[in-house]
Design a protein around this nucleic acid. Structure first.
Lengths: 125, 125, 125, 125
DNA sequence: GTGGTCTAGACCACG
DNA sequence: GTGGTCTAGACCACC
């Protein structure tokens, strides 16, 4: 149900793109605790990249404490960490939005136009 | 009146940090057409960086058409390009804000909290 | 009376954790010669691990000569091997302590503080 | 003045062996802040290993906050972090010694023999 | 089957 | 010169 896509032309390294997508999937609550994430080999096959690239993405998540690998079984979500990560992400997003909004205002964008942008997606779900 | 600061630990390369700060200064209307931007030598002295770093930042701005070097006189703002650049920046900011707002909503942040963030800085200018 | 606990996140593989705990139990004189160690099936049930994991731990102990399986009866401690194993373990512990103490001293820990640590547990047994 | 040695037969992966040695050198105060650590290529030449192996060791130290790489310049010690790391290491060593001492005592080693081991190296400096 | 390590070597971006 | 990324593929340990 969850799909991944990598773009070699992106500024972000492939492993970081993959890590980001995995992080979002995990944070959003897909991949319940009992089911392992897709195996390294599976992703290698799907994404046509080197095992190292996938491994590095998984290592990233592991270092963040989001996920734990178990020898011979696969990589599993550490549910305790998920909500904390989501909360951190929310704070970070709000700060970023604040900062960008300030920049936009400084460049003369009327506040209501910015608010409009924030509300824009509302009707599209 | 305009100062620059570089952080070697930032993800952005030094030259890009500098280019960004110069770009913002120019876009915001500092450095009127008659006054040259600081010389490479000056910035090298101020920022304690490699001349290549400063040169590359200036080259960036030049390629964007924002500034033009004049032999023996220094580097000057191309006023006709400033408004176009500012407009492009505004569009970019609004798109970024939209994208981040969507992500925040997906993580369960109520829309009004996001709008709040956008309005937050109102009284602080 | 003897319980085992495995931590999948530990650096040590599960089978090694189990082997270590069994080894310590045997060396410490629990499991007298007449009583068999818990069966593979029992441990699998208790620890919720793969039978291979338990088998490998038992194989380890067997190869060290500490225990011997008897067809249809279970796995028994080889009492004559226990004292030799304990002695080896003692030597190993002293070497480790020596090594760590040297490292601590190199980092500036006063020798008396280290001695203190060694004596610390005295009254707690 | 500082030399490194890797043993492929060791249980520890090569990158971890190297990371440990670098960590100790940094913690012990060699490699003052102004001088970069040996470059990846230098160590590759010295140790006859793959660049990836060296890189992974350096990445480890970076993630611990001990060291920071600067593009095009080399890898530098973060002096602020060194003392904190040394203190953490001291605590860890004392805990390990305590634990091992307890085990030794449980196996019947007289406390004075353990204390002797701790003091053993005294006259060798 | 799973994840983990290592090699040999190319290519890029930065200063 | 520096560090960073990626590839293609081998080998190992664990469950």
């Amino acid at each position: 149900m969850t799909s991944f896509s990598l773009d070699p032309r992106d500024d972000l390294p492939l492993y970081a793109q993959l890590a980001r997508q995995l992080r979002e999937a995990v944070t959003a609550g897909r991949w319940p605790a009992g089911r392992p994430l897709p195996s390294v080999r599976t992703l290698v096959g799907l994404l046509k990249v080197n095992p190292q690239t996938v491994l590095r993405a998984y290592r990233e998540l592991e270092e963040e404490g989001l996920v734990e690998p178990r020898q011979g079984q696969g990589t599993f979500v550490r549910t305790e960490a998920v909500e904390a990560a989501a909360e951190a992400r929310r704070r970070e997003l709000l700060e970023d939005i604040e900062r960008l909004a300030r920049q936009a205002r400084d460049l003369g964008v009327p506040e209501e136009v910015i608010v409009q942008a924030v509300r824009k997606e509302k009707g599209e779900s």
